[in-house]
Computed example of a mutant assay.
Amino acid sequence: MVSYASLGKTLVFLDVETTGLDTKQCDIIQLAAISGDRTFNVYMMPQVAIDEGAMEVNGFSVSDGALLLCGRAMPTVTLPEALTSFLGFLWSLEQPVLLAAHNARHFAKPVLDRALLRCSLNWQFQQLGSRFLDTLPLSRALHPGLDSHSLVNLLGYFLRRHYNAHDGFEDARALQDLYNCWNPRQEIVDNFLY
């Protein structure tokens, strides 16, 4: 497990793939998280249509009642099942946990909050007492001279690695690897917690 020892928290890197970019309307298609060698990854059948732009970026589509990723059918669970399993995953880790996501504040957190509320699981999530770390502004603060702070560019720049971007699990793993490479000081990280 990745520990943020100075705060006494376990770091959990997460990513969501969705039907679009509108946080008030999009559905979660994939929810993935990683903490050290502990992993979580589920797919859900969306209740709203996948935007054309989202399809081009993440490769998800729906056909004949199946969720497809680059044309391959993926096993799905319902949103309540996915979120209940995710909460179980978080509770299985050393408490408390700190959830880290790239663009957490403006995308991952609002999407996850809305889904938890929709499934009446927001209270259970709040019991974790988890805070979020947004690694996008953290990256900008740590490395202001970079032209792009996308995960793809950051992973290529710092780790000389390319990966299957916009796959939720691969994005979460890339973020964990980047964070470990950066090893930022607590006083900097504290500016991006909420």
Rank of each mutant, 00 (worst) to 15 (best):
3 S>D: 08
3 S>F: 06
5 A>W: 03
5 A>R: 08
5 A>M: 11
6 S>M: 07
7 L>I: 09
8 G>W: 02
9 K>L: 08
10 T>S: 10
10 T>Q: 11
11 L>A: 04
13 F>W: 05
13 F>T: 13
15 D>S: 07
17 E>N: 05
21 L>I: 15
21 L>R: 04
22 D>H: 03
26 C>T: 04
27 D>A: 08
27 D>I: 01
29 I>N: 12
30 Q>R: 06
30 Q>H: 00
35 S>V: 01
35 S>W: 02
35 S>R: 06
36 G>P: 07
38 R>W: 05
38 R>L: 04
40 F>S: 04
41 N>G: 04
42 V>F: 11
43 Y>M: 01
45 M>Q: 09
49 A>S: 14
49 A>E: 13
51 D>S: 14
51 D>F: 06
53 G>Y: 11
56 E>C: 01
58 N>G: 06
63 S>A: 15
65 G>T: 02
67 L>Q: 02
68 L>R: 07
69 L>K: 15
75 P>W: 03
76 T>G: 12
77 V>E: 03
79 L>Q: 12
84 T>Y: 00
85 S>C: 08
85 S>P: 02
93 L>H: 05
94 E>Y: 12
94 E>Q: 12
95 Q>R: 08
95 Q>H: 15
99 L>R: 06
105 R>T: 14
106 H>W: 11
111 V>S: 02
111 V>L: 02
111 V>E: 05
113 D>N: 15
117 L>Y: 04
118 R>D: 14
118 R>V: 11
122 N>M: 10
122 N>S: 12
124 Q>C: 04
127 Q>L: 13
129 G>M: 01
130 S>N: 09
130 S>V: 13
131 R>D: 13
132 F>E: 01
135 T>K: 02
138 L>H: 09
139 S>Y: 08
140 R>I: 08
141 A>H: 03
141 A>W: 06
141 A>C: 14
145 G>P: 06
145 G>S: 14
146 L>V: 09
148 S>T: 09
150 S>T: 15
152 V>N: 03
153 N>V: 10
154 L>C: 02
157 Y>A: 10
158 F>G: 08
161 R>P: 00
162 H>L: 10
162 H>G: 11
165 A>F: 14
165 A>E: 01
166 H>Q: 04
169 F>D: 01
170 E>A: 11
172 A>V: 13
174 A>T: 06
174 A>S: 13
177 D>H: 07
179 Y>N: 05
180 N>F: 00
180 N>V: 15
182 W>E: 05
185 R>N: 12
187 E>S: 14
189 V>D: 00
192 F>E: 03
